[in-house]
């Protein structure tokens, strides 16, 4: 039962991740790619890892995956922010009207 729920969560998370990859290929300007991908990717990553925790059952495996999840949630915003800030500081703009 729990394993089945885990499989369902994994499939759902893979769907989210696939949407992120689809959007990184589809969208045409850098800032919408930066906003969409990394974020949808975060949701997909979290869901997939929670599914893996349910599949593996209650043991040290689950605790290690939880640690991976926490570390990743702490470090992903850093890299996304660094990339977006770098592009912004170099003067890469997409639209004239606003600030972007």
């Amino acid at each position: 039962m729990i394993v089945g729920a885990g499989y369902a969560l994994i499939a759902f998370g893979l769907f989210f991740t696939a949407t992120g990859v689809y959007s990184v290929l589809k969208f045409q300007d850098f800032y919408s790619r930066a906003v969409i991908t990394s974020k949808v990717d975060t949701v997909g990553f979290t869901t997939v890892l929670i599914g893996a925790m349910l599949v593996s059952g209650a043991n040290f495996f689950t605790l290690k995956i939880a640690l991976i999840l926490v570390f990743e949630l702490l470090t992903t915003p850093l890299s996304t922010h660094a990339i977006a800030h770098s592009a912004y500081a170099a003067g890469y703009k997409v639209r004239r009207s606003g600030d972007v």
Partner: peptide, 10 residues
């Protein structure tokens, strides 16, 4: 180059 770093992240 920023698109490439984004891909690296992904």
């Amino acid at each position: 180059i920023w698109d490439r770093i984004l891909g690296l992240n992904l």
